Amino acid sequence: MDLDNLIVMANRIGLFFAAQPDRDEAMAGIAEHVKKFWEPRMRSQILAAIGTEAGAGLSEIVAAALTTHRAMLQPA
């Protein structure tokens, strides 16, 4: 899948969960949603983009959520 589309989708998920008052819960919600609903190839692609120029479009909360919960998001 196109990385730009993945970034847009991830940022939309982030917008939804960012409304939660507890930042840690919001980040856990983002990661759980990605784990549940994204196929392994999509997760691998977005995780590889974190911290690179290609992933610069990720919102701060999404990048933090994916980084913090990277272990649970790694495809098996």
Rank of each mutant, 00 (worst) to 15 (best):
M42F: 01
A48N: 06
A64L: 11
M72H: 09
N11Q: 08
D24A: 10
T52L: 05
I46D: 01
P21E: 12
G51I: 06
A28V: 09
V34N: 03
M72C: 05
L66D: 04
D2V: 15
R23W: 03
Q20S: 12
K35V: 01
M1I: 02
A28L: 13
A65H: 07
V62C: 10
G29P: 08
V8K: 10
P40I: 02
R70A: 14
W38A: 02
A31I: 05
P40Q: 04
W38G: 03
Q74P: 00
M9P: 01
Q45L: 03
V8T: 06
K36M: 03
Q74N: 10
L3I: 02
E53R: 15
N11D: 02
M9Y: 04
F16W: 05
Q20V: 13
A19H: 15
A48C: 07
E32Q: 13
L73S: 09
L58G: 12
K35I: 00
Q74R: 15
M72I: 11
G14Q: 09
I46P: 00
L73D: 02
G51A: 11
A31D: 02
F37H: 07
A18G: 08
D22Y: 14
G57S: 11
A10R: 11
G51L: 10
F16Q: 05
A56M: 09
A65Q: 09
V8M: 10
H69Y: 09
I7V: 14
K36G: 09
T68Q: 09
S44F: 01
D2W: 01
Q45N: 03
D2T: 13
H69A: 11
L66Y: 09
L73H: 09
R23M: 07
D2G: 13
P75R: 10
G51P: 08
N11R: 13
K36L: 01
A10I: 01
G14W: 02
E60Y: 05
E39K: 14
R23C: 02
P75Q: 05
M27G: 11
F16N: 06
H69N: 11
E53Y: 05
A65V: 15
V62G: 14
V62E: 03
N11L: 06
A26L: 12
K36Q: 07
A18M: 09
A26V: 13
I7D: 04
D22V: 12
E53L: 05
G55K: 15
M1E: 03
G14R: 13
K35M: 03
S44G: 05
R41E: 01
A28M: 10
L47K: 11
A64C: 07
Q20G: 15
D22S: 15
S44W: 00
L15G: 04
I61M: 11
A54G: 02
I30F: 07
K36H: 04
L6M: 01
L58H: 06
A71N: 15
S44K: 07
Q20C: 14
V62H: 10
I13N: 02
Q45M: 03
A71C: 14
T68I: 08
G14F: 02
A49T: 06
E39Q: 14
G55V: 07
L58T: 06
E53H: 06
M42L: 06
N5V: 10
I13K: 04
A18C: 11
S44D: 02
H33P: 00
A26C: 15
